[in-house]
Amino acid sequence: MNTTAQPFDAAQDLADAPATAGARQRPRDAATLILVRRGRRPEVLMGRRAPGHVFMASKWVFPGGRIDRADFLAAAATEPDGPTRARLEAELVPRRARALCLTAVRETFEETGLIVGRAAPAASVAGPWREFRAAGALPDLAALTYVARAITPPGRTRRFDARFFLADADALLAPEPTAGSGELDEIAWLPLEDARALDLPAITRFVLDEVSERLGNPDRPLPFVRMVRGAHQVTHV
């Protein structure tokens, strides 16, 4: 494990949402999924948050969101693979580690209509997994690789302890996104170099660079980004 200072602009990072008196607000567990189409010009799936959002309005982000109670109970076609499972369970109890993988898949489906899963008989279930299961699929958790962790700095309107996962587009049952829930007003596959030119939150830019490096070196240590004594710190494990 090693710890390094990183060239984050903390003021810009905090400006992604209005400051509040929530410095002591406890971060909520969340998960984000970076879908990648490999090739000569690798592409990532990103969406622009609608202008009316309090949190990161009009910013381009990867699909994701906070954990839901239903994610602890949802069925899956496959389980997280060895390295991803081991890394998550070094931080979390196994039940919560698995639930966060399911969060990443569910949020991606809700926001983009894309299914990271395997075909299965349609099933009728209650709650936020209803439409996913009705589409005739079960989540493919083995397709996810745990690649980064970040805790939202104090002072944000909302705080998350976010785990970032990477998955190949080959794991999708259909290759193109739909309108999803409407939380993202534009969704697109973008070459990495084009994505860097967008209006991105500081952490999204950091993770985008991490993904670019990881495509050539999949065994890179996992970065953990957080604020310590007013400065961003990155620990690699």
Rank of each mutant, 00 (worst) to 15 (best):
G113K: 02
G117H: 03
P139M: 13
A119I: 15
A162G: 10
V116L: 13
R159N: 13
A75L: 08
A104N: 06
L172V: 06
E91G: 03
A142S: 15
A150C: 09
A162W: 00
P154I: 03
Y146V: 10
A75H: 04
S181A: 13
T145N: 09
A76D: 05
A169Y: 10
E111M: 13
E89I: 03
T103H: 04
A137M: 08
A137I: 03
S181V: 05
E131L: 14
R95W: 12
A76L: 06
T178K: 14
T103L: 06
L144E: 06
D161F: 05
A171S: 15
A99D: 10
P154A: 10
E110Y: 01
R130Q: 14
R158E: 13
E183M: 12
F164M: 05
A148G: 06
L141Q: 00
A77M: 09
G182H: 10
E91H: 07
R133L: 13
A99Q: 05
R87S: 14
C101G: 04
A171L: 11
V93W: 09
E110A: 14
T145S: 15
L100D: 02
A120D: 12
F164W: 13
F109I: 11
V147D: 01
L114A: 12
F165G: 01
R159D: 07
E107D: 15
L172M: 12
T112G: 05
L141Y: 02
T84M: 04
L88N: 01
T78I: 06
V93K: 13
G113E: 08
R95Y: 14
R159T: 06
E107V: 08
A122N: 10
E131D: 15
P153D: 02
L100V: 03
L88F: 12
A104H: 03
D168Y: 04
A142N: 10
A74T: 03
L100Q: 04
A142R: 02
